[in-house]
Amino acid sequence: VALAIGTTGAAAQSVTLSFATNTAPNNMRGEAETIFIEELQKASNGEINVVPYWGSSLMEGAEILGGVRDGVADMGFININYYPNQLLLNSAYNLFPKGPSTYENISWAFDQMYEQVPELSEEFAGQGQRIVYKYGVTPYAGAFKSPVTKLDDMKNLRVRAASRWYLNMLDGAGATPVSMPWGDVYQGLQTGAIDGVFTNIDGIHRASLDEAAQNIFFMPDLWLAIPFIITMNEDKYQALSDEHKEAFAKADAAARERFSAVWDSTIADILKAQEDAGYTIVMASPEDVEAFTTLPDVQKNQEIWSEEAKAAGVENPEKILEGFDSVISEAVNR
């Protein structure tokens, strides 16, 4: 009898959580999320099981914030850029193009940020969810049809970027910034409707954009500033036992450690694959990085953001920007 009770007790403790994401499991981002799921299972002695819905099969990227809030999924992947107003404060990461270039420092900066600027987590709390894991992806690169070895070579090229902040900076650098639906970019490059694309290097490689535009201008110091976030529905989290809550914290630390190695090797692998394919890879010079990250447009972006934040009722947006500035500078100089 005791054995039977023991078994039921153990069974009652195990929980199954659904997880919605827009990435496929077999790429860098999928690996980051798989590692976290595995570590969560390990840290809970197999009691927390996660059922993933990969590749937007349950929700599109831009639906997940609301979906986790309303319980469509228990956990979800959040890209801050998909919610320019709802996660307005979190979007301020984008205003600081120059960042740390090692995974340890990137990950340190993300942690510090949420500790020192509590408003950032509050924004998520306002959406009925909490951050349970964050990871970073690779830095920015440009992929161009024609040789680009220095910033000046981008002049008058039609370059596609996703975020408004980067479009403004490209404009400042003399390029013609273009917005184009992601689904059209490969062919746009192939046919020459656009001359280049500017985004994180793993994104470029994953969508074979480097195949259509074989001149890579890699800028390792231009971090993809936003953390990629996994959140959990707050009620669901509060319903967990203390041991299981503990497991989340343990999984966070263990997953980060494991992913750090993946991050390093991914960049190396991508560069190697590009080299093997005969593409040209140019590392941006420190002068070009400096010139790009100190464009007047960077300052202008921060002013635009501050104004919009004020209009949205944020009391002291400058203070938040200061918080970002100090953490990121410290991370860069660590």
Binding site: A62, Y82, Y83, P84, Q86, A162, R164, P177
Partner: peptide, 11 residues
Amino acid sequence: GSRQAIAGPTP
């Protein structure tokens, strides 16, 4: 209420 906006070149 949440001033939901699309990601992109202009919010």
